[in-house]
Amino acid sequence: MNYIWDLMVKAQRSGKSKKGIYFQPAKVYSPYMELSLVDINAMHIEREVEVNPYYRFYDIFLDMFTLDNEESEELRNALFDIMIHFLADIDLMQGMNRREYCIRFVLKDMEECLFGEDVKRGLALFNRDEREIIAVNVLRLYETGEAVYLLKDTMRKLFRRSTIYVNCEEKDELVFYVGQKESAETKARIELVRRIFLPIRFDTEIYWEHHFGIQGYEETMRIDRIALY
């Protein structure tokens, strides 16, 4: 890591709150690096991070930490932390297009209960990349209304071995094959996907490890590994 945005991205991916990071001006630093880390190959994020403020932001911090300025050091350090957090947020937003902003708004709405308390709780079961997959498809749902397709697409991306079959001959039914062991957490994750994308007219049936038999598909016709439909 060299830049403050490197640190913030790593913090996001590891689930660490950026509010728990305190930036302070480095006492000793390299003129070729923005972050002044004790271990430049560090894999974890320290609570206190020293920054070389002159690497990219010389004009901003030029007069704040001159050698002859000894007044209000505590205040200056607090302002420094606030300003570096602000600059890091700008770094993270640079290069984002309108769609990426919309995805962030969808995620924020889900995390703030605008989709309901159940969705907020269920979202906590997914990592950052998985949450983005869900948010992208929620946005696509607003744009296209293709709920069944997006339900299948979301399941396939979150559960790599899963398949969804549509049965509309006798009733409107979706049959889920998950391809993994049943567990309380997996059931809760699937329930969130169903709650968001499942059209109200459809019933569902879930199969876990064992696939129901389909004639002509040998992988589904193995003895002792066939579920009954």
Rank of each mutant, 00 (worst) to 15 (best):
N77W: 06
A78G: 05
L79A: 07
F80D: 10
D81F: 04
D81C: 06
D81H: 13
I82P: 00
H85N: 12
H85P: 08
F86W: 09
L87W: 03
I90W: 00
D91M: 07
L92T: 02
M93R: 10
Q94E: 09
M96N: 14
N97D: 09
N97Q: 05
R98Y: 04
R99N: 06
R99T: 09
E100C: 05
Y101M: 11
C102S: 08
I103M: 10
I103P: 08
I103K: 06
F105A: 07
L107Q: 14
L107I: 03
K108T: 08
D109Q: 15
E112N: 15
C113S: 14
L114T: 02
F115C: 02
R121T: 02
L123M: 08
N127M: 06
R128D: 03
E130M: 04
E130V: 07
I134D: 11
I134Y: 14
A135P: 09
A135G: 11
A135I: 07
A135N: 13
L139H: 04
L139M: 02
R140C: 09
Y142R: 05
E143L: 05
E143K: 00
T144I: 07
G145Q: 07
E146G: 06
A147L: 13
A147H: 09
A147I: 10
A147R: 15
V148D: 08
V148S: 14
L150Y: 09
L150M: 08
L150E: 11
D153L: 15
T154V: 15
T154Q: 11
R156S: 15
F159P: 13
R161E: 14
S162Q: 11
S162D: 14
S162L: 15
S162N: 13
T163V: 15
C168K: 10
E169R: 03
D172W: 02
E173Y: 01
E173K: 12
E173V: 05
L174M: 11
Y177H: 05
V178I: 15
V178W: 01
V178D: 02
V178A: 15
G179N: 11
G179M: 13
Q180I: 08
Q180P: 02
K181V: 11
A184D: 11
A184I: 03
A184R: 03
E185W: 03
K187A: 13
I190V: 11
I190F: 12
V193M: 04
V193H: 06
R194V: 01
R195V: 00
I196Y: 02
I196Q: 06
I196E: 09
I200G: 03
D203H: 01
T204V: 02
E205L: 02
E205W: 02
Y207F: 12
W208D: 08
W208N: 10
W208I: 03
W208C: 04
E209R: 04
H210G: 01
H211W: 02
F212C: 01
I214E: 05
G216V: 04
G216N: 07
Y217N: 01
Y217C: 03
Y217E: 05
E219C: 00
